[in-house]
Simulated assay, not measured.
Amino acid sequence: MASPSDHPLAPETTLVTAGRDTAAQNGFVNPPVVHGSTVLYPTAADLHAHRGEFQYGRHGSPTTRALQQALTALEGPNCAGVGLAPSGLAAISTALLAVLKAGDHVLVCDSVYRPTRAFCDDLLGRYGVETSYFDPLIGGAIDALFLPNTRAVMVEAPGSQSFDMPDIRAIAEVAHGRGALVLDDNTWATPLFHRSLDQGVDISIQAATKYLGGHSDILFGTISANAAAWPRVAEAIRLLGVCAGPDDVFLALRGLRTLSVRLAAHQRAGLEMAHWFKARPEVARVLYPALPDDPGHAIWRRDFTGASGLFSVVLKPVPQAAVDTMLDSLKLFGMGYSWGGFESLVIPFDCSSYRTATRWAPEGPTLRFHIGLESTDDLKADLDRGFAALGAAR
């Protein structure tokens, strides 16, 4: 559904309207879920010429086309194409393989998602790609880390678990001056709150398992790229055989339609709970760029239009056994390695063993919280019980 030429649509409206063609869908609001591998050609001439919008199920269907069109509209005018992957990690690995080859060097943010780090150190290393890690707060000083064979820079904004906020604009300016591409894991904010392709990023990646899906029921990834990078991304997707199943594509498209209202709710609750944690006597710090006193707040205000419901809390020194007692006492905060769904989650973490360019040494134990869509009063009551259990177990 096209927007009036004299009135550009707001992102919230784009989420509802993009990728929909009710006339082509026989009047139905949603596109059909096409399950199919084989596409038949009407004539031998069409077959020989590979003529037709759809040629084989792995390469796309009306269902995948609808989601790709909607995501392209959400990413903005700098987006030349969007690829779909069966998980966030598959999207990350496909994007890195698209721009790197044996003998290349890649610079990766030290606070990157841990499975990304494992992929770089293990698989890319075996294939002759060297990885160096950098301080996420390095900014333009990253120039000193470039080698003659540096071909890409991978950032994550904010950083996984520790929520460091890199200056993507400064990093991208240096990288492009050196002839390198910039990749960004944009899962935390999504393109709704951070159009990273407008900030100098060449390839923007989402673990759409999280907020895009929004209901903890799919594994999914997206790869959005500008005109300079899209041909390489599209080629890698084709050669690696990367594709997502039609039911997951449909669920991602359904989640996209409500992304703006869900993220607004996650943001409101996240800010409220972050301030609540800051006032707790058991808490040393809250790591959340949306807080005015966070070290990354100025960059967040400059480059982002909102914040999600994910942040970390540094507790004052306390035995790990007491933290475990607290976690076991919680009823509304589940313990699980994901986020972005409607439910609140918490996990303990310790970055110290997998940081190499920076030192992770917080004052006490650290917890990552995802604030879901429950009543914040109920969440606070649950945490009150948890902190009471923590104090009793000290």
Results as ranks from 00 to 15, higher is better:
residue 240 L to C: 09
residue 252 A to T: 04
residue 256 L to N: 00
residue 195 R to H: 10
residue 93 S to H: 10
residue 243 C to W: 13
residue 351 C to T: 10
residue 297 H to M: 03
residue 378 D to N: 09
residue 284 A to C: 09
residue 117 R to S: 11
residue 165 M to E: 15
residue 172 A to E: 08
residue 290 A to N: 07
residue 261 V to R: 11
residue 285 R to E: 15
residue 128 G to D: 03
residue 269 A to D: 14
residue 97 L to R: 14
residue 335 M to W: 01
residue 263 L to C: 10
residue 316 K to H: 11
residue 347 I to H: 04
residue 93 S to Y: 03
residue 370 H to V: 02
residue 30 N to H: 13
residue 13 T to I: 09
residue 293 D to V: 04
residue 202 D to F: 01
residue 311 F to V: 02
residue 160 S to L: 02
residue 217 D to A: 06
residue 249 V to H: 09
residue 49 A to I: 07
residue 327 L to I: 15
residue 53 E to L: 11
residue 10 A to T: 12
residue 249 V to M: 04
residue 46 D to M: 10
residue 115 P to C: 05
residue 237 I to C: 00
residue 66 A to C: 03
residue 4 P to R: 02
residue 43 T to F: 01
residue 360 W to C: 00
residue 273 M to H: 10
residue 330 L to T: 03
residue 240 L to Y: 06
residue 326 M to Y: 09
residue 267 Q to I: 01
residue 209 T to S: 15
residue 282 E to H: 12
residue 33 V to N: 11
residue 194 H to G: 03
residue 26 N to P: 00
residue 328 D to Q: 14
residue 201 V to N: 10
residue 33 V to A: 08
residue 53 E to I: 02
residue 52 G to H: 05
residue 92 I to Q: 15
residue 166 P to S: 05
residue 227 A to D: 14
residue 349 F to R: 07
residue 147 L to Y: 05
residue 103 G to M: 07
residue 219 L to Y: 14
residue 101 K to E: 15
residue 328 D to G: 05
residue 35 H to I: 09
residue 279 A to L: 07
residue 238 R to S: 13
residue 194 H to Q: 13
residue 291 L to Y: 08
residue 265 A to Y: 03
residue 61 S to M: 01
residue 193 F to N: 14
residue 268 R to L: 12
residue 207 A to P: 09
residue 308 S to T: 07
residue 149 N to G: 03
residue 287 L to D: 11
residue 162 S to P: 00
residue 60 G to K: 02
residue 108 V to G: 01
residue 178 R to E: 02
residue 290 A to V: 07
residue 375 S to Q: 12
residue 220 F to Y: 15
residue 220 F to C: 04
residue 237 I to R: 13
residue 394 R to N: 08
residue 18 A to W: 05
residue 125 G to Y: 08
residue 79 C to M: 11
residue 163 F to R: 08
residue 241 G to S: 08
residue 214 G to R: 04
residue 21 D to Q: 09
residue 125 G to D: 08
residue 216 S to N: 14
residue 250 F to M: 14
residue 17 T to K: 15
residue 52 G to L: 08
residue 195 R to F: 01
residue 236 A to P: 12
residue 44 A to F: 13
residue 244 A to E: 15
residue 70 A to I: 05
residue 148 P to I: 01
residue 5 S to W: 11
residue 293 D to F: 11
